[in-house]
Simulated scan of single mutants.
Amino acid sequence: MSNVLSSVDARTQLVGQNRLELLLFHLGGQQYFAINVFKVQEVMRLPELTKIPDSHPCIRGVCHVRGQTVPVVDLRAAVKMGPMTGDTSNCNIIVTEYNMTIQAFLVGGVDRIVNMNWNEILPPPGGAGRQHYLTAITRIDERIVEIIDVEKVLAEISPYELELTEDAYDRELLEKVHGKDILIVDDSNVALEQMKNVIAPMGLNIVQARNGLEAYQTLMHWKQEGRDIRDRLLMIITDAEMPEMDGYMLTTEIRQDPDLKDTFVILHTSLSGNFNKAMVEKVGCDGFLSKFKPHSLADEVQKLIRMKVEQAEGR
């Protein structure tokens, strides 16, 4: 099944076109789920697992993949559908890279890869149960496909350390931009909370959007109001993968707008490091950050603020 994955070159061609590829799978029932192919390293039959004492209940064990020891997460259990039971000999694991860590997800079976446009991907409906573990839904072959919020799954299994000490902040610099706007864009509540935890102590006005389209509409609304965006908006921090409009397309639209083209944009994503350079260069971002690295986020934001202040002072 590993040959189902596209090459790096083929996948990076989707960047800036508001397109994505989804890997479809099921969790032992009729409902189909998906994750972005960008996150996937390999798909294989479930190998023999080694149990780890005192591990999280959703960790089925570890396996060895290409010389690495990889934890295997029971994805069905992680999204509160109950553990995978019965004969697992025909099950698969999806080996993924998120935020520079490798993990595998135990699934019932893998179907295929589909190429889609992000405007075909919609925010999930409100509700209880596993809806809390979805970032989006879509329709394929007249069937609803649920896109898993893997960041939430991983945060619950291994919580991220998000607290920063006071010495992480340059108070003299931040005083010069107190109350100015910073726009953060992400469809994951976990990621939005992380960004707010890091940025709120800076004394900035945080404006948030749940996807690229909402962020773009916010920018257009500010333009219509006659707001001095170049002065008021310090930067935009955006996820890559989002319903309706992704972060690459958002950045492309910003770069093509004469009133916005000089806006600082940071791509803040859990995508594999293998694609970082190609994506950043293609869409023209000012920075690239892995998610859930609070010190790196604080450093990058303050670096761009310093550049903004120096530009304003004519240095």
Rank of each mutant, 00 (worst) to 15 (best):
M100F: 01
Y216P: 01
I94R: 05
T165W: 00
K223C: 02
H178Q: 12
C91D: 11
P159M: 12
G28W: 05
L27A: 06
E313T: 06
I206G: 02
R171I: 00
V107K: 03
L75T: 00
R11S: 04
T135R: 04
L250R: 04
P258W: 09
E241Y: 01
R230Q: 11
E281S: 14
L173E: 09
P83S: 14
Y133P: 01
V95E: 03
Y98P: 03
S2F: 10
I147F: 04
E193C: 01
P123V: 07
V43S: 05
P258G: 07
N119R: 05
N18A: 05
V198S: 02
E214N: 11
L173V: 06
F288Q: 10
N189R: 11
G109R: 11
T251Y: 02
G212Y: 04
S270D: 09
I94E: 06
T165F: 05
H178A: 12
P159E: 11
L173R: 13
L154V: 09
E214Q: 12
K282P: 11
V114A: 09
N117F: 06
Y32I: 05
Q103S: 14
D9C: 01
I121L: 07
V40P: 08
N90H: 13
L233Q: 08
K80F: 03
G284L: 09
K39S: 11
P123Q: 06
R230C: 04
F25W: 08
Y133W: 15
I140C: 02
P243V: 08
T85H: 05
H26A: 11
E161L: 07
E253F: 13
Q68R: 15
I148S: 08
E300F: 00
Y98F: 14
L24D: 09
M249Y: 12
G314V: 10
Q131C: 08
D228Q: 12
Q302G: 09
R210M: 11
M242P: 04
C63Y: 06
T101C: 07
F275M: 10
L183A: 09
V65F: 14
A278L: 14
D141Q: 13
K80E: 15
W222R: 13
V198R: 04
H178G: 00
K308Q: 15
W118I: 02
T85D: 12
V207I: 14
D167E: 15
V145L: 08
G179A: 13
M202E: 03
Q30C: 00
T238R: 03
P71N: 03
M242W: 00
R255G: 07
G16L: 07
I137M: 08
L46R: 13
L122D: 02
A128H: 12
E241P: 00
L20A: 14
H26R: 09
T135M: 11
K291F: 13
M245Y: 01
L14N: 12
N119T: 06
G179T: 10
Q256F: 07
V207K: 14
I229N: 02
G203Y: 02
R306S: 14
Q256C: 08
N18F: 09
T101E: 15
L267Y: 05
Q302P: 06
